[in-house]
């Protein structure tokens, strides 16, 4: 694993992740309406009445999947996620989450920790999620539902994969893992008239992997619909291979009156890296796999190494 972080860290993420999402928030949100199959399946597998967190909930897309559980979402975009009954959302940092430890039945972290810019911070982010989960030894110890405390809480973590040679971005093993990915936002988007989605997806043309994956899986549009005009690694000069095979994007650019490109930082996970980080963070991988350019894993805290009783914030009296 790279030890040279090139000055990355919190301030870097503020500039190349948080500030960008603040500016593209409503545009980004309009492209985020379809849950991914693995995530949907995980959420629907939960027992009624389960309590969980969605760390980095974005526009709250996953808050709508299962109305019989209670989820507290957190993100810098929480104001957009505000209304997804019965759930709730707050603004918080992945590394300083405002929740009681060892208390939750489940957690999801979907396309979030790949925005953390050093190996240590990515592991800390996983640890911050795992430590919220009940442990197999008993969780909050309320005693009212002993059957539920026999197994530990489960976290689903989903990150962008390095190995995606069949995607329009074409990254694969051996490529630089720390990359900047552009988000192109246009003020005028007449070029979208051929988009027949019934969703109000007026701005869904462009950029990042989420819209790319979603359009590829769930719409009739071509797979390169969401391509933006460039990609390049942090260290390298710009690489325009993406634009070369994205006619839709070129068309859109010529039709629009004005566009602005924002660069976001991503760490692309290579095979096995997510599982490694989970182990480093004190977790056990229960299941893992690859879905449409992403690695995912379901993890639970290691018994006995998670939050000790003294850190349980719930009162016992």
């Amino acid at each position: 694993m790279a030890t040279d972080d090139d000055g990355r860290g919190e301030a870097y993420e503020t500039e190349y992740v948080h500030t960008v999402y603040e500016q593209i928030a409503s545009h980004f949100s309009s492209t985020r309406y379809k849950p991914w199959p693995i995530v949907e399946r995980f959420l629907k597998s939960l027992r009624d009445g389960s309590i969980g967190v969605d760390v980095g909930c974005g526009n709250g897309k996953y808050l709508s999947v299962n109305p019989n559980v209670f989820i507290i979402g957190s993100a810098n975009l929480a104001r957009i996620a505000a209304r997804h009954e019965p759930h709730s959302s707050v603004v918080a940092d992945n590394l300083s989450l405002p929740h009681p430890l060892a208390s939750f039945d489940f957690a999801i972290s979907i396309a979030v920790i790949h925005h953390l810019s050093t190996p240590l911070r990515r592991i800390q982010a996983v640890r911050a999620i795992l430590e919220l989960l009940k442990t197999a030894s008993g969780g909050t110890g309320s005693g009212s539902q002993p059957a539920e405390t026999e197994t530990g809480g489960r976290a689903l973590i989903y990150v962008w994969a390095l190995e995606q040679k069949d995607s329009r971005r074409g990254w694969d093993e051996g490529h630089e893992q720390d990359v900047m990915v552009p988000w192109v936002m246009k003020s005028n988007n007449k070029a979208n008239h051929k988009n027949r989605q019934k969703n109000k997806a007026e701005h869904r043309e462009h950029s990042d992997h989420l819209s790319a994956s979603v359009s590829g899986m769930h719409t009739q549009d071509g797979p390169s619909k969401a391509c933006s005009d460039s990609q390049h690694s942090v260290k390298e000069k710009q690489d325009t291979s993406c634009a070369a095979h994205d006619n839709d994007s070129q068309q859109a650019t010529s039709d629009s009156q004005e566009s602005k490109t924002f660069q976001r930082y991503y760490h692309l996970y290579r095979k096995g890296e997510l599982e490694h980080d989970i182990a480093e963070a004190g977790g056990i991988v229960l299941d893992s796999g690859y879905e449409k350019d992403n690695w995912w894993a379901v993890a639970t805290p290691v018994v006995g190494t998670s939050a000790p009783a003294s850190t349980n914030l719930y009162r016992t009296s």
Partner: peptide
């Protein structure tokens, strides 16, 4: 923010 949510929040 719901009163229920307070049940699942602490200092960060």
């Amino acid at each position: 923010m719901k009163i229920l949510t307070l049940n699942f929040l602490t200092c960060a």
